[in-house]
């Protein structure tokens, strides 16, 4: 029975640096395993689309331009993705990965949520088409994307 059982804590804290993180002014390094934006390596992809099948959020689209020449385009929807890494596990060929550096994906425009991976000319060719995946609202032509 005593009054002020946390006296020790508070008096010590007065002389300590606050633990509050001053994000975004000071940034900590993110852990290696942080699940951020998806990465795609068309050279390894086979176009099997298992990742598309297993994705719970319809976050990936894989478009096959030329299977033999390994010309694939992966469209990734940063807003739909739940960052669960199921696609990374599902892909037997190690074509998908997750970046631990790109995780600040909030944006003010819808276009920014739409990232395409693959060869530039393939992306450009596909961008003019309207795509439609089952269960997902059609996505119209979109602004230039990054690789």
């Amino acid at each position: 029975m005593r009054i002020g059982a946390m006296l020790g804590d508070i008096s010590r804290s007065l002389f300590k640096r606050p633990v509050t993180e001053r994000y975004p002014f000071e940034r900590k390094a993110t852990p290696e395993r942080l699940r951020g934006q998806l990465t795609f390596d068309p050279a390894k992809c086979t176009g099997c689309k298992i990742c598309v099948r297993d994705c719970p959020a319809h976050g990936i689209e894989i478009m096959v331009v030329d299977k033999v020449a390994k010309r694939f385009v992966m469209r990734f929807h940063t807003d739909r993705c739940t960052y669960c890494a199921q696609c990374v596990v599902s892909c037997k060929f190690d074509a998908l990965g997750m970046s631990h550096e790109q995780w600040e994906l909030a944006a003010l425009s819808k276009e920014a949520f739409f990232v395409s991976f693959g060869r530039e000319e393939d992306i450009q060719a596909l961008l003019t088409q309207v795509t439609c995946t089952p269960g997902v609202a059609p996505v119209g032509p979109v602004a230039p994307a990054t690789t």
């Binding site: 508070i10 804290s13 606050p18 633990v19 001053r22």
Partner: peptide, 9 residues
């Protein structure tokens, strides 16, 4: 109060 609670305030 914030400093007592180890916050920045």
């Amino acid at each position: 109060v914030a400093r007592f609670q180890n916050r920045i305030g």
